Amino acid sequence: MASQGTKRSYEQMETDGERQNATEIRASVGKMIDGIGRFYIQMCTELKLSDYEGRLIQNSLTIERMVLSAFDERRNKYLEEHPSAGKDPKKTGGPIYKRVDRKWMRELVLYDKEEIRRIWRQANNGDDATAGLTHMMIWHSNLNDTTYQRTRALVRTGMDPRMCSLMQGSTLPRRSGAAGAAVKGVGTMVMELIRMIKRGINDRNFWRGENGRKTRSAYERMCNILKGKFQTAAQRAMMDQVRESRNPGNAEIEDLIFLARSALILRGSVAHKSCLPACVYGPAVASGYDFEKEGYSLVGIDPFKLLQNSQVYSLIRPNENPAHKSQLVWMACNSAAFEDLRVLSFIRGTKVSPRGKLSTRGVQIASNENMDAMESSTLELRSRYWAIRTRSGGNTNQQRASAGQISVQPAFSVQRNLPFDKPTIMAAFTGNTEGRTSDMRAEIIRMMEGAKPEEMSFQGRGVFELSDERAANPIVPSFDMSNEGSYFFGDNAEEYDN
Score class of each variant (00 low, 15 high):
N370F: 07
L381V: 09
F420Q: 02
M1C: 11
R317W: 05
I225T: 14
A85R: 13
E449H: 08
G268Y: 02
Y281S: 06
A218R: 01
G431E: 02
T15W: 02
A332K: 11
N368Y: 01
G209L: 10
P173L: 07
T360K: 05
K273M: 07
G356F: 09
T171N: 10
A387Q: 03
L379H: 04
I36N: 09
T378H: 04
N250P: 08
S170G: 12
Q459A: 09
N473H: 12
A332H: 09
T23E: 00
Q4T: 11
A85H: 14
A131S: 15
S486L: 12
W120Y: 14
P95Y: 08
G349P: 09
M105P: 04
Y281G: 07
A336V: 00
Q241G: 03
N76S: 08
G349S: 09
L61T: 10
R102N: 01
P89M: 04
F39I: 04
P173M: 02
G17V: 05
S478G: 07
A153M: 06
L49H: 03
R152Y: 05
F206H: 10
S407I: 04
R436D: 09
R117H: 10
Y296E: 04
P277T: 12
T378K: 13
A251S: 06
G132C: 08
N250V: 10
S176Y: 09
I119C: 15
R65I: 03
Y40K: 00
E375N: 11
Q58I: 03
P474D: 00
K48H: 12
D128V: 11
S467W: 01
A278R: 02
Y281I: 09
R152N: 04
F489G: 00
I445H: 02
Q311N: 15
M43G: 06
S274H: 03
R75E: 04
K77T: 10
S402V: 10
S377W: 02
L49T: 13
G30W: 09
L256M: 15
A260H: 10
A129V: 13
R384V: 07
R261Q: 13
G268L: 01
Q364H: 08
S402F: 01
A472Y: 10
E294M: 06
I445Q: 07
A237M: 15
S297A: 04
S287F: 09
F489D: 07
G54E: 09
D302H: 14
R389M: 03
R19I: 00
N492D: 10
R19C: 08
G431H: 14
F488E: 01
P318N: 04
L226Y: 09
L226G: 12
Y496P: 00
S170K: 05
V299I: 11
S383D: 10
I444M: 11
L47C: 14
Y487I: 07
T130N: 10
M1V: 09
T6N: 03
V414W: 00
T147A: 06
L341K: 10
L154E: 03
N397Q: 10
D112Y: 12
Q459G: 15
E294C: 13
M481H: 08
S176Q: 05
A181F: 15
S359V: 14
M159F: 01
K198G: 03
I96A: 04
H135C: 07
E465P: 00
T350R: 05
H272L: 05
A260Y: 04
Y296A: 14
